[in-house]
Design a protein around this nucleic acid. Structure first.
Lengths: 228, 228
DNA sequence: CGACACGTTGACCAAAATCAAACACGGTGG
DNA sequence: CCACCGTGTTTGATTTTGGTCAACGTGTCG
């Protein structure tokens, strides 16, 4: 269920570049790491802060398609077309390390394990996205938001932060865009969760009070499921 | 917009196995090519007929997560966990060629181009699924179904069949499951399209009359979009 | 023929989008 | 310091969509 995040588990610790603090790039809030349509130049590892990836469709809709926090890899979905499929924008002051394309090829040649692992991560990602989004497709707003919060909480935990208290740099409308809901619905649903004692949310600071129940809400289908 | 299909463009024509008609496997309607949870043994190329992939979630919901027709590759999403993440079931009499895992590794070692292409396809797929499903998430039932039909039509065309007349082996409830809609909504929406002169659908035979308008309906957001 | 899966249609209702308005907050400039 | 603005957030009233329940066709297979 590690769904809302970019893949992990790559043996990145073996790559010296990523630890060279000289190659860090600093982004201020609102600055773009890359823009939609730019040719693929490499992957990025988020060191601190967070980014959102926004894709604009042919019909001029902007969708938040990914949220990357410290430890996440950004740019994997650019490999396919050799173009970045969205714009990665810093949600706060953010640092990233760069893993240029040519270096990636070199490493791939040297370390078959890396190559293989990258492929696995991609395959895994295909499956996760398919299943999760198809699940969201038939979930109520309540379940979608609960699911999202539980996933984010788990992600913070895996990174060594508190699972119950965290700052989520996404705005309400970013969350709405990510989950396919309007701002108003996000706001109202959070208020409902608050009233039920499941969490406290003022602004972008979240405090999960009842992860147990929240997980249950996330799992509740609320809509008819079928196929078979 | 080549979204609802498994990736293509792999240099599969270079692989003799796939042309050896002796290795074809025949499946009758309802038979499974592989079942969810089985260890990954290889990929399959659909030769004739069609399959649906059904994934059962932890909460016992069955979701149709993919639809594969002649020419599509099946099993790509199994590489990640080395397990098939769903059950692939024949929707009609279907033949597939097998590309076993060990052979895949051999070929990958021999042909770097194949490896690279596979990786690209996977990356592409990640992006497609993300974008399409997030798009569907904020679409009305009408737009979802229109989008689906347009995509299927394009797929038939690319395979050399008519874009306007085709037989879609999925049942109404399969379509509903795939798009996150109930059977009733699928049925009603098709009826509305019929009344508007956009298509004729009796049973599983479809005749697209106005692809132009249908595409427009598919693109119409119908819901508020945001993020930026 | 009946059993059964699939498909369609109608009446009703709940969920969430829409429209609208007000509120909180941070920054800017007087 | 405060007035002012813009952005983001919340809340309320209303409407639309589509899910739910239920009944009824249609076709196929034994």
């Amino acid at each position: 269920m590690s769904c809302l995040c970019l893949p992990m588990g790559l043996p990145l610790e073996d790559i010296p570049e990523l630890h060279d603090t000289h190659t860090f790039t600093l982004l201020r809030k609102g600055e773009a790491l890359f823009r939609q349509g730019m040719p693929f130049t490499g992957l990025f590892l988020v060191r601190s802060g967070s980014l959102k990836q926004v894709s604009t469709t042919s019909t001029d809709e902007s969708l938040v398609t990914a949220y990357a926090m410290a430890g996440d890899l950004v740019g994997l979905d650019a490999i396919g077309q050799s173009l970045y499929p969205g714009t990665a924008m810093a949600l706060e002051t953010t640092t990233v390390s760069v893993l240029p394309q040519e270096r990636l090829s070199e490493l791939g040649a040297q370390l078959p394990a890396l190559r293989q692992q990258l492929c696995r991560n991609l395959s895994q990602e295909v499956h996760n996205e398919r299943l999760m989004l198809r699940l969201l497709l038939r979930r109520t707003a309540e379940a979608r938001l609960a699911y999202f919060l539980v996933a984010v909480s788990a992600r913070f935990q895996r990174r060594g932060y508190s699972a119950s208290r965290f700052r989520l740099a996404l705005s309400r409308s970013d969350i709405g865009s990510y989950l396919g809901l309007t701002v108003e619905t996000v706001s109202r649903t959070l208020a409902r969760f608050h009233k039920q004692g499941l969490l406290k949310a003022n602004g972008r600071d979240f405090h999960i009070l009842d992860l147990e129940t929240l997980s249950r809400v996330a799992g509740a289908s609320g809509r008819r499921g079928m196929g078979g």
